[in-house]
Simulated assay, not measured.
Amino acid sequence: MFDQLVLFAASLAANFFSALSGGGAGLIQFPMLIFLGLPFGIALATHKVASVALGLGATLRHLKASHLERRMSLIILGAGLPGVVLGAATILQIPERAATLALGALTLGLGLYSVLKPRLGMEHAPRNWHGAGLWGGMAGLFAVGFLNGSITSGTGLFLTVWLIRWFGLDYTRAVAYTLILCGLVWNGTGALVLGVLGTVAWGWMPALLAGSILGGYLGSHLALRKGNLWIKRAFETVTILIGLKLIFG
């Protein structure tokens, strides 16, 4: 019972901040599973399954004020899902420490980049939806999908900033796409692949799912009420903390 309470509290906190900032639930949730005794591979598969509930909780809130457009949704799914499948199928072949350090440096860089760009994500100005710009954006989505399938901590943040920087979305819209499409569909695909190839700790799942759904809903609710500036500050805080955590352990 104590372990279930710990799992619920940590999952609630992790997914609340993830829904507010557009990613990063793995900063707390994944290391916690390892700390409580799960081997890396089982912890990875378990975290991926639980992270689908974050997308469900966020979807329940964002659909009430949805800014999602069908075309952009199809682009994100079509370009990103093949990367998710490839990443999830190859993760156990990648040296863990090297991948973690690289991800930490990139994540920290995202946060600092946003800090140095005060207007980043403050306005919705769509671009690169056609021609060469679209193909470049899809290549980026494939790369982010690969990271999402293979690495556990903070990869939703990469999708958020890519949608802002390349496609011209504001933070509110980018986070909605990330939480619904990445959180629900990308993570669901990765969870399916890892569930087939690996092992899931199903006995740990009730508390993780409850914390993920509730945290995702509450974080999304606060983000929609507070708007772009709050989301931007949350994004910067979470990315910098995740980057430092991954680099320095």
Rank of each mutant, 00 (worst) to 15 (best):
D3I: 14
F8D: 04
A9N: 02
F16P: 02
G24T: 07
G24S: 09
A25Y: 02
Q29F: 00
F30W: 11
G41H: 13
G41D: 12
A43Y: 06
H47A: 13
G55R: 00
G57P: 02
T59A: 13
L68T: 08
I75E: 04
G80A: 06
L81Y: 00
P82I: 10
G87N: 14
A88F: 11
I91M: 12
I91H: 14
P95Q: 05
E96A: 12
L101W: 11
A102M: 15
L103P: 12
G104D: 08
L110S: 07
G111Y: 06
S114R: 02
P126G: 14
L134G: 05
G136C: 10
M138L: 03
A139I: 04
A143D: 01
I151M: 15
T152F: 03
G154H: 10
G156K: 06
F167Q: 12
G168P: 09
G168I: 08
T172I: 09
T172Q: 13
A174N: 07
Y177W: 05
T178K: 15
L179Q: 07
V185Y: 12
N187C: 03
N187I: 03
G188P: 02
A191I: 04
L197V: 14
A201F: 08
P206E: 11
L209I: 14
S212D: 01
G215R: 01
G215H: 01
G215M: 01
G216K: 00
E236Q: 15
V238W: 02
V238F: 01
T239P: 05
I240W: 04
I242D: 05
I242Q: 07
L246I: 09
I247Y: 02
